[in-house]
Computed example of a mutant assay.
Amino acid sequence: MNIILANPRGFCAGVNMAIDALETALRLFGSPLYVYHEIVHNRPIVEKFQKLGVVFVDDIAEVPTGGTVLYSAHGVSPVIRKHSEERNLRAIDATCPLVTKVHKEAIKFAREGYTIVLIGHEGHDEVIGTMGEAPANMVLVEDAADVAALTLPADTKLAFLTQTTLSVDEARAVIEALKQKYPQVVGPNKDDICYATQNRQDAVKKLVTEADVVLVLGSQNSSNSQRLAELARTTGTPAHLIDRVSELRDEWFRADDTVLVTAGASAPEEHVQDCIDYLKRKFGASVETRTVREEDVNFPLPRELRVLTNA
Score class of each variant (00 low, 15 high):
Ala13Cys: 06
Met17Cys: 04
Val186Arg: 08
Pro183Cys: 06
Asp277Cys: 02
Met1Leu: 05
Ser246Asp: 15
Tyr71Asp: 07
Leu5Cys: 03
Tyr114Ser: 00
Val259Lys: 01
Arg172Leu: 12
Asp125Val: 14
Val40Ile: 15
Ala177Gly: 10
Glu294Phe: 14
Pro302Glu: 12
Val168Gly: 10
Arg306Tyr: 06
Gly129Pro: 08
Lys205Gly: 04
Arg43Met: 12
Thr65Lys: 14
Leu308Cys: 09
Gln201Ala: 00
Thr130Trp: 02
Glu251Asn: 14
Ala196Asn: 11
Glu294Asp: 15
Val102Asn: 00
Ile119Leu: 03
Phe299Met: 09
Met131Ala: 12
Glu269Ser: 01
Arg111Ile: 10
Pro78Val: 11
Phe49Ala: 05
Pro78Ser: 07
Thr165Pro: 03
Leu231Asp: 08
Val214Thr: 12
Asp146Gly: 15
Asp212Leu: 00
Arg43Gly: 08
Ala18Ile: 08
Arg303Phe: 13
Leu152Pro: 10
Glu133His: 14
Gly120Met: 06
Thr209Trp: 12
Arg43Thr: 14
Val297Gly: 05
Thr162Asn: 05
Thr100Ser: 14
Pro32Thr: 03
Val117Pro: 00
Ala263Met: 03
Gly30Ile: 08
Val79Pro: 01
Arg81Leu: 13
Thr95Phe: 09
Ile39Phe: 00
Val292Gln: 06
Glu85Pro: 03
Ile119Met: 06
Arg200Gly: 04
Glu304Gln: 12
Asp191Glu: 14
Ala73Pro: 08
Glu23Ile: 12
Thr68Cys: 05
Ala239His: 10
Glu288Gln: 14
Ile242Asp: 09
Glu112Met: 14
Asp243Arg: 09
Asp256Cys: 01
Gly264Cys: 05
Ser286Gly: 10
Ile80His: 02
Val46Glu: 04
Val15Trp: 00
Leu140Cys: 11
Tyr195Asp: 14
Ala73Glu: 09
Ala196Phe: 01
Lys101His: 10
Arg90Tyr: 12
Asp250Tyr: 07
Phe283Val: 03
Leu140Asp: 12
Arg293Ile: 05
Ala211Ser: 07
Leu150Gln: 07
His37Asn: 14
Gln273Pro: 04
Leu150Pro: 07
Pro153His: 06
Pro78Ala: 09
Leu207Glu: 08
Arg200Leu: 01
Arg227Ala: 08
Ile242Ala: 11
Leu150Arg: 07
Ala134Thr: 02
Cys12Ile: 07
Gly129Cys: 07
Asn310His: 13
Asp274Val: 05
Ala311Asp: 11
Leu215Asn: 08
Lys51Ile: 02
Val272Asn: 00
Phe283Asp: 03
Lys280Tyr: 05
Ser77Thr: 03
Met131His: 08
Ile92Asn: 00
Glu38Pro: 08
Lys108Ala: 10
Thr65Arg: 15
Pro64Gln: 06
Ile45Trp: 03
Asn16Tyr: 04
Lys280Phe: 03
Arg249Lys: 15
Gly67Lys: 05
Gly187Ser: 14
Leu22Cys: 07
Leu166Lys: 01
Ser84Arg: 07
Ser286Val: 11
Glu85Tyr: 09
Val185Gln: 03
Asn2Tyr: 00
